[in-house]
Design a protein around this nucleic acid. Structure first.
Lengths: 219, 219
DNA sequence: GTGCAGCTTATTGTATACAAATGACCTAGG
DNA sequence: CCTAGGTCATTTGTATACAATAAGCTGCAC
């Protein structure tokens, strides 16, 4: 979209993801406009988009608040994501182009490289992981599915999960990607869907472990 | 939302659903503002919402067009809807309150009444059918699921389907609702999900039949 | 002390003017 | 006749002023 509106979207989204705007905080259009150095109009636009991303919720009187997620909400989000990503993998298995398959192999090789050293390169892992899943979503060839899924991925909780991955989970994730590539190579839709569902559910439990550890540590 | 913006949303949405704005038509904010007798600001707001509903698509240069749906798109929408509504039924089965169960029975009785006479009362059928599915979605207790599903239901194609239901499909729909109530009554999540998935897929084929008949008649 | 009424203030909704960008058309040159 | 370039019209983006509405607060009555 346009410059000012995009800028506002990126800035506000960044502040939410960074925790600068904590869950439950009220958002004033005027304050955000000052912060982003644009007028209220593009800020309103950005808020609507963030609301559709479920990063913001609005009260019945149209005031905006940073969404806060209960444990049930988080489980719910992972459950839906598992279902939809599995469906994406199912569709992709019979539609994926050779070039896309090669691109998957490429990104997973780089994921392997990122986690190979003594200190894992988490930003590189995240980037190639994102690209990997994006290719599958593109190969699924369903704009509706893509539209639904982008509302569930890269949300605060999901985004933070990988930050807390331990070495074992990084290795498993890399291995599951390899299995996905194998399933795509054989054009086995059921296999691809099963691996993907498990892949997301494992990520959920990895998140739970990390989150529980954090909460315990905070006490 | 607010008065003018809501009004614009309702009017534009109505024009699209009624076919007054045909698929592929370009939408000018100014023209719609005149038509709705409001300024461009609430029209822009309404267009963003309709875009998020997938009723409108925007070109890369931000111009708005009425979305047109290929046969694949339609199959895709029904497939996703079947998956998500089945998930809603699965969750609802173990969470539904006695009062909600009774409300389901109530609406399905009225559906039965609406299709009992020689001439079926389609508006009543649609209204109680909508209420029936809405109760299940509420009982599922997942705002995320609700948010995703509302983007798929009541879209042009889905909406037109019931208009073309023949007596046999109306009767089947009523019967499937009864089975859903039975599954909820037994708290059988798997059963409820299966019935719901079949319910939506049957609706898809009913749509296909009606659509094919229309196309054949048009030649 | 509690609760309600009315006012004050903060916040969002709408209209309008203007700026920027895009697309179409038309003309000039090959 | 076709293409390239530029100009003009159309359309969307942004800023700002003003209107409407909702939240919060103060003070009064009970």
């Amino acid at each position: 979209m346009s410059r000012a509106s995009d800028h506002a979207y990126t800035v506000i989204r960044g502040m939410i993801l960074a925790g600068e705007l904590p869950p439950g905080a009220q958002l004033s259009e005027e304050a955000l406009a000052l912060r982003c150095e644009v007028s209220r109009t593009p800020v309103r636009d950005a808020l609507r988009r963030l609301e559709s991303d479920l990063l913001i919720r609005r009260s019945e009187s149209q005031r905006s608040f940073v969404a806060d997620w209960s444990d049930d909400d988080i489980e719910d989000a992972f459950e839906l994501r598992a279902m939809l990503e599995a469906q994406a993998a199912r569709r992709a298995a019979t539609r994926i182009a050779p070039a896309q398959l090669e691109a998957l192999r490429h990104h997973n090789r780089l994921i392997g490289a990122a986690i190979a050293g003594d200190l894992a390169d988490i930003p590189a892992f995240l980037e190639h992981n994102r690209a990997f899943h994006e290719i599958i979503l593109a190969a699924a060839g369903s704009s509706r599915l893509a539209s639904l899924l982008t509302r569930l991925i890269e949300q605060p909780v999901v985004w933070r999960t990988a930050q807390n991955y331990d070495r074992e989970n990084l290795r498993r994730s890399h291995h599951e990607h390899e299995e996905l590539v194998a399933a795509f190579d054989r054009r086995d839709a059921g296999w691809a869907a099963s691996i993907m569902a498990g892949h997301i559910r494992r990520a959920y439990h990895a998140y739970l472990d990390a989150y529980t550890a954090q909460r315990t540590a905070a006490e």
